[in-house]
Design a protein around this nucleic acid. Structure first.
Length: 670
DNA sequence: TTTCGACGTCTTTTT
DNA sequence: GACGTCGAAA
């Protein structure tokens, strides 16, 4: 038997559970990662084939971490099938695509691509014409996506979340069908399609039997964040055996905005007959002072579930600090000072994190850290792959994978001077009549000589064709594409040297792959986070500070945590204040943030802020005003020292003529 | 048909 | 600040 040290009684019960449905309610820091890890080992030990165990998580990082830890104790664990719902869907759909009449090498659209595709459909249908105001493409995407994830019709979604577009509901409902058809024609799958089609094929008895045969034990992490579709998918994956173990914490459900249905976790016992429930309550992460604050936050929740965080080893530390600053520059200085201080006390930078509600809140801090040459990583917010130049190059790559990719062609063609939407569309129609890049060259060759973009486009297609020759070595193919793209890069962007560095980095990533499809899918599903600081000197090999949105920090922990921007309207977000459900989700988010800290926790806010173009006086977050929370904080004297009374303005008695005379004097002296 | 500048609107979180 | 719309000029 695998030695499983330090597991407490309920953890052991969860690990020992073999067949049948199991719900594990795992409080923050209760060691659920270890439970999953050891249960995998236990199953394998009991003779279950590793390949028939499926572990579904929300980030690939999470599943990789759990499985690689398990694999250190038993190498067979590396063969367990693990990944995100979306990644698993791609795998299965590639396998079944041909049976559905879909190309095996279908393209996965990220959110931006999806918005672009929808825009094309809406333009085609002339939906923008004759309507006073039609949602912009990213809003269209949000509306349609939410309808899918919450299983609602467009009208209901608009009524609830986008009331200013009620009169467009009908048009968008039509667009939704057009968009679905368009994607099928083009072999495009957006994020929602991956779940939708996975659910669809699992609903076919033959497919379900096949899949149930393959996967006999299913585990799902962060079950409170699954949506209706994912709930159904899990049920179908469980099949008749119902060897389904789900792990989650209803107090940490923070993805309602993308359709998470946290009743999934509440309904689990009813949905799965004969299921067992195990609660993990002992906390192995934080000091009791931090947990007290966490408990305070739990108390403020309206839908409170019985839960009380208790430090398992009775660890103690300082009270969480609440600090006020004049502006974000001072806030950033303080955080950087504090990080440096802990560093000099011998703590590793990787034990320090700064968390925030929205990614822009960290901009000032990034500048400050860079100035001091403190290395950091940023999580959440704009991704590396969201930048224009990276998207450009990814489009080039997409054309190698599928020369008929309309969206990619559109983006690439529009890069050239003199080519706008109309010209691009005309060219695309012609291009799609040819099968390969080599044949497509003729389209550009036959362009009128007076078209000033002719030469550049011929150069482009030659470059693409040449790169395709090298595709068996992705690193080389990429370099060829980069050379073709370089003149456009230098022409288009003032800061092209900066951007060229990003593209060099992309080159290294590309070289690690051996299939373009895999590369592109990975970029769509789990794009690399933005690499920001490259720092040398004092802090080398000392790890890096983490700057992260609270959402991206879930599941992680650090010794010292700073939560910045504790301002009403920012956290909780004014956007969420519109509904009770929204505010409740912000509370859960605050709970997640607080419970990331092991030893020290700082909450900070600034008096002056900049919003909507004007400087305003910030109000502290309403969370900080609640006694249940407030009383667990070490806060400064509420009264700021009174500013000295300004003396009366001295009289200098000068009229306009005298002023002008004085001015003349000053001008003359120059 | 494209490009450019002026002006208006909305501004969160992620697979 | 990003994105979209509109009108004018090339």
């Amino acid at each position: 038997m695998v030695a499983a040290p330090f597991l407490n009684a309920s953890q052991t019960k969860a690990v020992e559970h073999l067949a049948g449905p199991l719900l594990v309610i795992a409080g923050a820091g209760s060691g659920k990662t270890r439970v999953i890890e050891y249960r995998v080992l236990r199953l394998i030990e009991n003779g279950i084939a590793p390949g028939s165990i499926l572990l579904l998580t929300f980030t690939r990082r999470a599943s990789k971490e759990m499985l690689s830890r398990a694999a250190k104790r038993d190498p067979r664990a590396a063969e367990v099938e693990g990944g995100t719902f979306h990644g698993f869907a791609v795998k299965l759909l590639r396998q079944f695509a041909s049976k559905l009449g879909i190309k095996t090498n279908f393209t996965v659209l990220d959110q931006g691509d999806a918005a672009e595709a929808m825009h094309r459909c809406a333009t085609e249908k002339k939906l923008y014409e004759g309507v006073h105001r039609f949602p912009q493409k990213s809003t269209l995407q949000k509306i349609v996506s939410m309808a899918t994830n919450k299983r609602l019709d467009v009208a209901t979604v608009i009524e609830r979340e986008f009331p200013n577009f009620v009169e467009c509901a009908e048009g968008i409902e039509i667009l939704r069908d057009d968009y679905a058809k368009y994607k099928l024609e083009q072999s495009y799958f957006d994020y929602d399609d991956l779940l939708l089609y996975l659910r669809l094929i699992l609903g076919e008895p033959a497919v379900q039997t096949y899949v149930n045969e393959q996967y006999r034990f299913v585990m799902v992490d962060e079950y409170q964040d699954t949506n209706l579709l994912q709930g159904e998918i899990v049920k179908l994956l469980g099949g008749e055996r119902q060897n389904v173990m789900v792990v989650g914490d209803d107090a940490q459900s923070i993805y309602g905005f993308r359709g998470a249905f946290h009743k999934n976790i509440l309904n689990f016992p009813a949905e799965y007959q004969g299921s067992k429930i195990i609660k993990l309550e002992a906390n192995y992460r934080s000091s009791q002072e931090i947990l007290d604050l966490g408990n305070g936050v739990l108390q403020t929740m309206e839908h409170r579930y019985d839960k009380h965080l208790k430090s398992a080893d009775n660890r103690h530390g300082d009270l969480p600090n609440l600090l006020f600053f004049k502006d974000t520059a001072q806030e950033a200085e303080f955080v950087a000072d504090q990080i440096q201080e802990y560093y000099h006390d011998g703590e590793n930078l990787s034990e320090m994190a700064v968390l925030f509600r929205s990614s822009y809140l960290s901009f000032n801090l990034q500048t400050e850290l860079a100035k001091r040459r403190i290395p950091y990583d940023v999580f959440g917010g704009k991704k590396f792959s969201d930048t224009a130049h990276v998207k450009d190059l990814l489009s080039y790559l997409k054309l190698l994978a599928n020369p008929k990719d309309e969206l990619a062609w559109n983006r690439v063609l529009m890069l050239f001077e003199g080519v706008g939407p109309k010209t691009a569309q005309k060219l695309i129609v012609q291009l799609k009549g040819r099968a390969t890049l080599v044949e497509m060259k003729a389209v550009f060759d036959t362009l009128g000589e007076k078209a000033k973009y002719k030469a550049s486009l011929v150069r482009l297609i030659k470059g693409l064709a040449a790169a395709q020759e090298l595709v068996s070595n992705l690193g080389q193919a990429y370099e060829a594409l980069l050379e073709t793209y370089r003149p456009l890069l230098e022409d288009k962007y003032d800061n092209w040297t900066q951007r060229a560095k990003d593209l060099e980095m992309l080159s290294q990533i590309a070289a690690r792959y051996d299939s373009i499809e895999t590369l592109l899918t990975d970029f769509a599903l789990e794009p690399p986070e933005r690499e920001v600081s490259e720092v040398s000197g004092v802090f080398q090999n000392e790890g890096r500070v983490t700057l992260s949105t609270i959402h991206s920090a879930k599941g992680l922990e650090w010794g010292n945590v700073f939560i910045i921007g504790m301002i009403e309207g920012i956290f909780p977000s004014s956007y969420a204040l519109k509904t009770d459900e929204g505010l409740e989700e912000e509370r859960r988010l605050f709970y997640v943030a607080v419970t990331r800290a092991k030893q020290r926790l700082y909450l900070t806010l600034t008096h002056y802020g900049f919003a909507g173009g004007i400087t305003q006086f910030n109000k502290p977050s309403q969370f900080l005003e609640q006694p249940a929370i407030n009383s667990y904080l070490d806060r400064p004297d509420k009264e700021a020292p009174a500013a000295p009374k300004p003396a009366p303005t001295p009289d200098i008695g000068m009229d306009k003529d005298q002023l002008l005379a004085k001015l003349a004097e000053l001008y003359a002296r120059k």
